[in-house]
Design a protein around this nucleic acid. Structure first.
Lengths: 248, 248
DNA sequence: TTCCAGCCTTAACATATTTGAAGTCGCGCC
DNA sequence: GGCGCGACTTCAAATATGTTAAGGCTGGAA
């Protein structure tokens, strides 16, 4: 028999994440924990959890680690279309479609839970608060995707990277992964480039600029946002699109 | 009493659109037609159907005309994040969120139907095929949004515009708005610029290039794709992300 | 008819960003 | 203990795209 305490800890990020969108019932939380416990898995950095073209028959819930949703063009150009963070669900609803149109790859070691389509449908059917929270998360992901389009389409490099950092900061907050304005930041500059539609060289230049302005410290896989207010201003960042019910 | 024939015609694009995703039941179609008939409205070019910041309390279904979803930065820069075509639903599911994070504006005269939240929920609850088709459409919109991120992030101007044209072509096909490879194309070059993240001047340059290559004819608000195969090749276009069940 | 506004087009010029190449640093592996 | 690899950094040169400005066309309003 597993330690219930351990399992609760594992599910913690998901519960926090979903709770930021909808109040979850005790029963829903219990069911979710059970489902997670039943489907635990691990992945190594570089490994794809799902690949473009795969049939969709299950849902994944991320418990720890960072991942990227991405698409690749025939000639190798890659675009990361979103990051997936602890507590996020991969495609809770995409199972309405039959085939994945993008891949999801681990950027770090990852622990996650797989829930088969049937079990997942049952889960949602048995607790309304859970279902709503999941749908809601899916809608927020769409909103994030829209904002990325704006970010890449209309912001210049400096604003663009600043904006991405602000977003990640705001998304890590509710899952308790920010400490004193600092967080683990396991993303390489190449990932950053693929996420912002820039070249690695230019990402590097731009990060230097952000450092020089004293807005961030980024070193040893750790990001510290020194002046969040100014960073948000230079990014033209507004958190509204994250639709997060803020306590306050 | 309205002519039932007229109403059927009005709802035609929606039915076609949704049918491309899920087989609709007769009953579902009838309910949908009734709902549309009850909420008919019009908008003029330039008018916003919904604006960023608006509370969300109803759903809109587009019957005719073109619209754009867009966001505006404080300093006026605008990014169109998607086009909305006849048969599309505006945010069938966004009502899970409380506030709009973007605006939807008419590019041409538009006819559409408004369905209040309550009536819409009832509609979905009363016919499963309808509900699934709507959810499905929402998921496809997410997929489109991802592809736009890739498009703007990783394709160069020529590919980018070619890709957008291919997408619009493929989306107009199921709603029967393509005739001999031609369609009405009411989008200004400025709209095109805001949709692709380019400047108007560069869009113009690039369109000239596409014309010179003999791939398209664009004149008098009419677009003709002369060589779809080559256009798709230059765009690195694959229709998979549209998740359209093709007859064939 | 004239005027005006919106849209398209072109040119010359400015610049943000990319490309290619090379050097450094740290780290795991043989 | 050296070697190789991945990530970061920097430079200089090339180029895609943006900016500013101006002219022409069309269609509607007066």
């Amino acid at each position: 028999m597993h330690s219930p305490m351990l399992e609760r800890n594992l599910a913690q990020p998901v519960i926090r994440r979903l709770s930021a969108l909808r109040q979850l019932s005790e029963r829903g939380i219990a069911l979710l924990q059970q489902a997670i416990q039943d489907g635990l898995q691990r992945a190594r950095p570089g490994e794809d959890l799902v690949s473009e073209g795969d049939p969709i028959d299950s849902v994944r819930i991320i418990l720890s680690g960072w991942l990227a949703r991405y698409k690749t063009l025939e000639d190798g150009r890659r675009q990361i279309v979103n990051f997936v963070l602890p507590g996020d669900c991969c495609d809770a609803c995409v199972y309405l479609l039959s085939v994945m149109d993008h891949s999801i790859g681990a950027l770090t070691p990852v622990t996650y839970a797989v829930i088969a389509r049937g079990a997942f449908e049952q889960l949602l059917a048995s607790d309304r608060s859970l279902a709503e929270a999941m749908w809601c998360e899916t809608m927020v992901n769409s909103a994030i995707q829209r904002e990325w389009t704006v970010n890449i389409g209309r912001r210049v490099a400096l604003e663009r990277i600043a904006h991405l950092l602000c977003e990640l900061y705001e998304r890590l907050l509710p899952v308790d992964m920010i400490e004193d304005g600092s967080c683990l930041f396991p993303i390489t500059q190449m990932d950053l480039a693929d996420a912002t539609g820039l070249s690695v060289v230019h990402v590097n230049r731009t990060l230097q600029e952000l450092r020089a302005s004293g807005l961030i410290v980024l070193r040893d896989r750790t990001l510290t946002i020194t002046d969040l207010k100014v960073l948000k201003d230079t990014a033209l960042f507004s958190a509204d699109y994250l639709h997060t019910k803020r306590r306050g």
